[in-house]
Nucleic acid binder design. Structure first.
Length: 265
DNA sequence: CTATTTGTTTATCC
DNA sequence: AGGATAAACAAATA
């Protein structure tokens, strides 16, 4: 389920082991989450290194060890991160276990294995961390960028474009539906047909939903207020919190989308 | 047994 | 060349 705020929530789960040192790394290199990775290098080189920094950018996590070890974690659809106390045993889908000198263990789990582990041992930033688009809540993000993104995808449904990570880092399926619902714009509208007033509204709601998600979910995975679309969109039979009328669901841009026909146009 | 899932990559067509 | 679309990946859940 990880989007912007859920990824931040999971980043925090490893913080109890910050400034501790790796004693061993356990993994099964056959698992799909390690595709393309030099698992032997990860297992050997991370030992004796200190966990010094924990960063997040959109849905991408970057964990730094020592002065040249970069561990990337992408949570995919069902990825999770947690810390195991001494004596606690790994579970079925725990694919990467990093034991620390405190006897805590950092654990990455992922049932569906759409997630991915990345690793680089170099003083310079690896490509997967160096090449990042501006984050939605950063100072360099602005309306002109968003306007330009829509102009590059004029024939795509706006829902599909909101899911492009290069444009809207961290936005996932529920955030995109929430943004469109708050902007009162239907998900299948083509970007080229969205006028300036609507684009300005979308830009504001993109930032608003990102802030709200971080505040409500990113800290302790709290349940969002009932006046968000969030709590009503998951199952069919949901009701629009604005109009009290039924919500609609259908695939838009390849993803199940939920909208309120009595509210969005 | 069938259909569905909060994500990304790859192939293919335009 | 770049945009648009669908399939593939894998396991749990309803």
């Amino acid at each position: 389920m990880p989007e912007l705020a859920e990824v931040e929530y999971y980043r925090k789960q490893w913080l109890p082991a910050l400034n501790q040192t790796v004693t061993s790394v356990h993994l099964n290199s056959d698992k799909r989450v390690f595709r393309g990775l030099d698992c032997a290098a990860l297992k050997q080189n991370l030992v004796h290194e200190k966990f010094i920094e924990s960063l997040v950018h959109g849905k991408q996590l970057c964990l730094r060890f020592g002065d040249s070890h970069w561990l990337g974690v992408h949570l995919g659809m069902t990825g999770r991160m947690q810390v195991l106390q001494a004596g606690e045993l790994p579970a079925k889908h725990d694919h990467l276990i990093i034991r620390m000198d405190s006897n805590l263990s950092l654990v990455f789990s992922d049932a569906r294995m759409f997630g991915r582990i990345l690793y680089s041992n170099h003083y310079l930033q690896p490509d997967w961390w160096a090449h990042r688009p501006p984050e939605i809540l950063s100072p360099e993000y602005n309306f002109e960028r968003v306007d330009a993104y829509f102009n590059r995808r004029t024939k795509s449904p706006v829902k599909a474009v909101l899911l492009v990570q290069e444009f809207f880092p961290g936005v996932g399926n529920w955030m995109a539906d929430e943004i469109l619902w708050r902007s009162r714009i239907l998900p299948f509208r083509k970007c080229g047909k969205i006028n300036m007033r609507e684009r300005i509204e979308l830009y504001k709601r993109i930032r608003e939903v990102s802030e709200d998600a971080i505040r409500v979910i990113g800290s302790d995975w709290g349940r969002p207020p009932e006046n968000w679309l969030f709590n009503h969109r998951w199952k069919s039979g949901g009701i629009c919190p604005q109009t009290g009328k039924p919500l609609s669901r259908a695939k838009v841009g390849g993803r199940t989308s939920c909208w309120s026909p009595s509210w969005q146009s």
